[in-house]
Design a protein around this nucleic acid. Sequence first.
DNA 1: GATTGAGTTAGAGTATACTCTAACTGTTAT
DNA 2: ATAACAGTTAGAGTATACTCTAACTCAATC
Lengths: 151, 151
Amino acid sequence: MTYSIGQVAEKTGLTTYTLRYYDREGLMPFVKRNQAGRREFTDANLDFIDLITCLKDTGMQLAEIRHFVELAMQGDATLETRLNIFKRQQQAVCNQIKQAKQHLAKLDYKVRYYTAACDAGTEAAVSGDCELPGQPIIIDNQLRVKKVKAE
Amino acid sequence: MTYSIGQVAEKTGLTTYTLRYYDREGLMPFVKRNQAGRREFTDANLDFIDLITCLKDTGMQLAEIRHFVELAMQGDATLETRLNIFKRQQQAVCNQIKQAKQHLAKLDYKVRYYTAACDAGTEAAVSGDCELPGQPIIIDNQLRVKKVKAE
DNA sequence: GATTGAGTTAGAGTATACTCTAACTGTTAT
DNA sequence: ATAACAGTTAGAGTATACTCTAACTCAATC
């Protein structure tokens, strides 16, 4: 079972332009052609494209990915180099997740801050340094624009 | 206390080129100039630059960030819009973390796979579809290149 | 007062990753 | 056999985010 470039585009979500671009950039030297010169992708090829996508999405540049592909084409002699590439990328993604969580903490604070400000009707009523996620948000009821309902 | 553009570059890790570029792109309309026309950054400005960096690092484009800055400059009338921007970005980062974790699972599998392959000396000895993280990695000792020490 | 150093601008150049166009070819349906 | 369609290439164009250069200004030091 093989797939045309259009079918692969559908399956992967990449455009045919992008797939041909990747091929030209040396990211897919394993894709065979039929007698008419058209690409015929196998299931193994699709798996490899998924891997390329994984590496790209985790911040690896196309040039580095091409390098990895070249190593993979050379067979067992490059096993250790490839292992190290994955170890490095693994570490990189761990750091990315750590950083993303820090960013998320900041965004969480901003949401709480702006929720309080919306509630009060003005930023002036909301205390504190917007940049300190740990800090409690205090509303100065004197400065409210929208009045609070008495209980 | 104010800081020159060079001091801000040191503090933030951005280059002076980048800081001026951001200013030109309308990301820092709040930065004041001294009588000589030089930028004078306040601590509040530094905090805002940190926020810009947070938004950029979580995938927001400079054009969107400029839009947010414009809203912020308009004051309380845009509080809700700004709240919604942060809510959307919060959700975006959650998804990014989820995706990164999936990528990491794939990379973890690759590391285990290549570790086994390095150990065996050849990929041929390592079983299974490299693309299925759940699958156990089995080594065919018949195909080993480096022999295992007998116990 | 000249030099050094850090700032200013406008605008050109670069890197990366696509994205599209034009001209052409081979396969399939009418 | 002709039209429609999906593929092919080389090469140009675009988007985004910087990155640098040139020419100039201002403040401080020798």
